[in-house]
Deep mutational scan, measured.
Amino acid sequence: TRVETATETAWISLVTALHLVLGLSAVLGLLLLRWQFPAHYRRLRHALW
């Protein structure tokens, strides 16, 4: 049971790290898009909202 718990903890930390990385890359990508294509971003936002 001790090994299982350790594996579970490792998986949880791995998944958390993955989610953090994905979230950060998504935010960075959005910022980059907004910085590179302001007109396109505004049009996209206008279409979405």
Rank of each mutant, 00 (worst) to 15 (best):
R43K: 09
V15P: 01
T5E: 00
A6D: 07
Y41I: 11
V21C: 09
L44N: 02
H46R: 10
L22C: 15
T9C: 06
W11G: 06
T1P: 02
T16H: 04
A47H: 11
L28D: 00
I12T: 12
T5A: 00
P38R: 12
T7G: 10
L48S: 06
S25R: 03
S13D: 11
A6E: 05
L24F: 13
A39N: 12
G23M: 10
W11K: 08
T1S: 10
W11Y: 10
I12R: 07
T5G: 01
L28G: 11
L31H: 01
H46N: 14
T7W: 13
Q36D: 00
G23K: 01
E4D: 06
L18S: 03
T7D: 06
V3D: 00
F37R: 04
H19T: 15
R2N: 07
L24K: 01
T7M: 11
F37C: 14
R34Y: 05
A6V: 03
H19Y: 13
V15Y: 04
L28H: 01
F37D: 05
E8T: 13
T16R: 03
A39H: 14
L22N: 00
P38L: 08
A17S: 06
S13I: 13
L32W: 12
S25E: 02
G29I: 13
A47S: 07
W35F: 15
A10Q: 07
R43M: 08
G29D: 05
V15R: 04
A47W: 12
W11F: 11
L24A: 09
L31S: 07
I12Y: 09
L18N: 02
A47Q: 06
L24C: 06
H40L: 08
A39I: 06
T5H: 00
S13H: 10
Q36C: 11
E8V: 04
L30P: 04
L31P: 03
A10C: 00
R43G: 05
L14R: 06
L31F: 12
T16G: 10
V3G: 01
H40C: 14
R43L: 05
T7L: 08
G23W: 04
L48N: 05
E4N: 08
E8F: 01
P38Y: 08
V3L: 09
V21G: 10
I12L: 11
